[in-house]
Structures are given as structure tokens and as C-alpha cells.
Amino acid sequence: MRRYLAARLLQALGVVIFVTTFAFVMIHLAPGDPIAAALARPNITDAMRQEWRTAYGLDRPVGEQYVRWVANTARGNLGFSFSHRRPVRDVFADALPNTLLLSGLGLVLSFAIGIVVGVVQAERPGSGRDRWLGRVLLVLYSVPDFWLALVILMVFAYRLPLFPPGGMTDAVMYEYLSPGGKLLDRARHLVLPVMTLAILTAAGVARFQRGALLAVLPSDWMRTALAKGLSWRAAVARHAFRNALLPVITLFGLAVPAFATGAIFVEKVFSWPGMGLVVVNAIAARDYPLVTAGVMLLSVLVAACALLADLAVAAADPRIRLG
């Protein structure tokens, strides 16, 4: 077990280093630099931009900049964001909780819905209900995510102005609301983006859950359980479900990082100030420290989640023994 864990950790570390270095090199090779983007006002001269480049060492070779970045990162200094003109750490401290709130709710909701729908489908595979649900799921699974977000925005914020069209809170009045009013305001802003995320992801989860259940249903112990007189639902709940949950755990491990980058499109359409938006904008602004730190944070998350999912599967599945 310890050896397995050590090997997995080492592998994860390797992936993180590789991915981060790749992002660092790519973004430095791209045309333009953070100064060109941050000091883009037309009446600032190129000569002044050059002074800033020198001041920040951006005129040094990429290798040297990389070494300096590694040294700083090792000391826990993620650097200073050019586009936000704040420490990278502060930018993340603002954006990450926003993403976690949106994604956390989206994840929980979509897995809850997805698993239930998957189980309902698997109860009578091939029945009318299963096929009908399957088609709906396939349609939802085929919707372009940004388009669904745009359509939901169009319908529920513009045509029927039931919900605010974006943002996390009322931009002006939030701080002056009563505690109850604040909660309500937040909830109202959450509805549309969470709904979009839940619809998009639940479709995938349900399809996966159905497949996973069908794969374990024909097994001997399921047949035994049914023979013992357990109802189908009880048998599923006692035996099959536990086994079918394993691939779903793996899926969860995959989904967490995908959500943590932020559902980029959902954040964009609903103006949600989360990680996805921050990192995408940072790329356009060539904000080297922010991009590199963002990719690093992301790949750590991915590696950690994959590892946790593996361990969770191992813990849940008695057949796997970790050597």
C-alpha cells in the first residue's frame, strides 16, 4: 500500500511538473507579453513599455525566467499578476471560492439527478421508459454547453426576467441588504448557472450510471439476491449499487477538476467571476505568473482528485488489494 501510494504520488508530481513547464514555455513563446497587454493605452510609448519589461526581467532569456519562477514558487511566492496588478495569491483567493460554490452545487446536484435517472433507467433496460429517457439524455448530452447557457440566459433572464442575467450578487445593493436579503440575492444569482451545469453534467452521469449498473446486474450475487426474494430495488440498493458506484467515483474524480477550472463557458455566459474566467482572461493578457500558477493549481487538483478517486475505489472494492 505504501509503495503504491509513493509511486502514484511520484507519478502525479511528474505530471504536475511537466504540465506546468509546458504551460510556462508555451505562454512565454506566444507573441506579445504582459506589458504589451497591461500598458495598451495608445498614448503610452513603446520606450516606456520597454522600461517595464526590463524592470520585471521580461527581457531575459526564457530559461533564466523559468529558473527564477521555480525559485520563487518553491518559496511559496506565486508572483504578481500583471493584468490584475495584485499578487496572484490574492487573485486566486477571490476567484477560487466563487468557483467552488458554483461547481460544488453543480456537482452535487448533477450527480444526484444523474444517479437517480441512471438507476430508474437500469431497472427495466430496453423498456419504453429507458429508451425515452435515453433519448432525452442523449439530446442533452449533445447540446453545446455555451449555447445551452446562452439559451437559458435568453429565456429566463431576458424574455421572462425571472432571474438576474449574471454576476454573483447584486452589484450595488448587496452590502446594504439584510442578512436574509443577502442570502436570497445569492440564491437568485445561483439558479441559472447551477441549472445549466446540472443539466449538462447530469446527462453524462446518468448515461454512465446506467451503463455501470447494467454491467454488474447480470452477476451471480445479484441473481442470488433476487432468488432470496429481495425486490429489484432492494437488491440493487444492497448489492449492485455499491458495485456500480465504483466507476461513478472514478467519474467524480474526473469531474472535480473539470469543474474546478471552472465551467469556463458557464462562467463566461453568466459573468461568474471564477477560476475559469480568470485563467482564460489571463491567457489573452499574457499574464505569465497568473497563467502558470493557474495551470499549476489546476494540475495539482487533477492529480489529487484522480489519486483520491483511485484510493476511494480501492477502499470500496474488496477485490482490489493494493500491494
Binding site: 508555451m26 505562454i27 506566444a30 477538476p257 469556463i264 491567457i283 497563467v291 484522480a306
Partner: peptide, 22 residues
């Protein structure tokens, strides 16, 4: 397989945005 693992650890869209910036 390590390359594939690494590739799986960044969402394709982010990878593409970084590369397209080039």
C-alpha cells in the same frame, strides 16, 4: 501512456487556448 495521462490532466479547451495563443 504517461503522455496520455498528462494530456488528460488538463482540459482540452485550456490546452488549446494556451497553444492557440502561439
Amino acid at each position: 501512456m504517461r503522455v496520455v495521462d498528462a494530456a488528460f490532466s488538463i482540459p482540452a479547451i485550456l490546452l488549446l487556448i494556451v497553444v492557440i495563443a502561439l
